[in-house]
């Protein structure tokens, strides 16, 4: 079994101060990563254990920047590793994991729909959860106002 602190030590040995590891429990590791090193850290994770799969990713609006948190798990183990990258507004973008791991394809499209963060290098950046008729706004941004949106669009979108 892999514990969060073992992996944190290993990542710090390789990447030094570039990564910010916080092991909140033996089964939960959170790693802050600068966007330009995300792919490198991801490859290191997979080199360390080939069983790492992308469980899902969270996107959230943190006012000055957009946070993209990739949650990785290993089948058969309790550890969940979260790689956190921050994308600065006004044109938030982070490197895409989708060319390297198919599981990232849909979730990155969803995150783009909800907050407008761009995934650079995504092979298929179409909408996923936002209907074609939905205007080009991002409903999970803090400045999104549902009441004003409804007044502008009306109750029903035309599909």
């Amino acid at each position: 079994m892999t514990t969060a602190s073992e992996l944190a030590t290993e990542l710090q040995r390789i990447f030094g101060d570039a990564v910010d590891c916080v092991a909140r429990s033996p089964r939960r590791l959170y790693v802050g990563v600068p966007p330009e090193r995300l792919l490198e850290v991801f490859e290191q994770l997979r080199a360390w254990h080939p069983g790492f799969r992308l469980a899902t990713s969270t996107v959230l609006d943190l006012r000055e920047e957009i946070g993209v948190f990739h949650h990785f798990a290993i089948n058969g183990e309790s550890l969940v590793v979260t790689l956190k990258v921050m994308a600065r507004k006004p044109d938030p973008s982070v490197p895409s994991l989708a060319p390297r791991i198919p599981a990232a394809n849909w979730i990155e499209r969803e995150m783009h729909d909800l907050t407008g963060v761009r995934f650079v290098g995504h092979p298929d950046p179409r909408r996923l959860v936002k209907a074609a008729a939905f205007p080009d706004v991002h409903p999970l941004r803090r400045d999104f106002d549902p009441v004003a949106f409804k007044e502008e669009i009306g109750e029903h979108l035309d599909y």
């Binding site: 799969r53 198919p102 599981a103």
Partner: peptide
Amino acid sequence: QVVDYGVVGPTA
């Protein structure tokens, strides 16, 4: 493919 696509549960 199960690992690549992150397939879970009975399907995996």
